[in-house]
Design a binder for these strands. Sequence first.
DNA 1: TTGACATGCAAGTAACTACTTGCCTATCGT
DNA 2: ACGATAGGCAAGTAGTTACTTGCATGTCAA
Lengths: 94, 94
Amino acid sequence: MGDIFKALADPTRRHILDELTDRDGQTLFELCGRLAMKHGHASTRQAISQHLELLESAGLVRTRREGRYTFHHIDPEPLRNLTARWTAPQREEQ
Amino acid sequence: MGDIFKALADPTRRHILDELTDRDGQTLFELCGRLAMKHGHASTRQAISQHLELLESAGLVRTRREGRYTFHHIDPEPLRNLTARWTAPQREEQ
DNA sequence: TTGACATGCAAGTAACTACTTGCCTATCGT
DNA sequence: ACGATAGGCAAGTAGTTACTTGCATGTCAA
C-alpha cells in the first residue's frame, strides 16, 4: 500500500511510468535510451533496473521474459482511487 | 508536483491526512494525541510538526493561526487526478 | 562454439530523511 | 506579573535510498 506512494515519490520512476504509458512493453535498454533522450536522464542501466524492480514490487510494473529480452508492462490498476480516502466524502482508513 | 508524492510516501503523514479528513482543523497537540491513540504512533510533538511543515509545503495542508493555537486544515485539491497521466487514456507528462 | 548482446547479482558510497534533543518565543488565565 | 500552555528553531544522529562499480549468467547469431 505505502509501497505505491514510495514508488511514485521518485522522479525517475515517474518518468519510467510515463515512458511505459507512452509505449508499453519496453526492454531495459529501450527504456534507458528513451529516458536519456526525452528526460535528459544520464542514469546507468543498473539504476534503471533497480527502479524497475521497485516498481514491480509495488505492483505497478509487470515483467515478461522472452529469450534474452525482458519486456516491462505498466499496470495502472493500483493507481485507481489511490487518493480517494482523502478526496471522497467517505473516508476509508487503512 | 513531486513534493506531493514525497509527502504521501510516509505512513505518518498519511495518518495525519487521515486524521484531518476525519476531523479538520486540529491543533498540533490534538493531532499528536489522536495519532497516538488511533495509530499507536509514539512520535514526539516535533516529529509531527515537521511532518506538518512538509505537508504544508506540498500544498496538502493549510495553517491558520489564532492566538496561541494553530489549526491545520487539509486541502485535498492537489490530490485530484494526481495519477490521471497513467490511468487515463490521454497522457500528460510533466 | 565463440563473441556479442541483454540482463542479473552484490557490495560499497554519498546523499537524503525521519527523528530526537535542547532551548527559545508567544499567548492565555489567574 | 507569573506559571502554564501551544508552538517554533536548530543542530545532531541513525536509518534509508539512489546510484555506482565490478563481475556473473543466459541467449542468440554467425
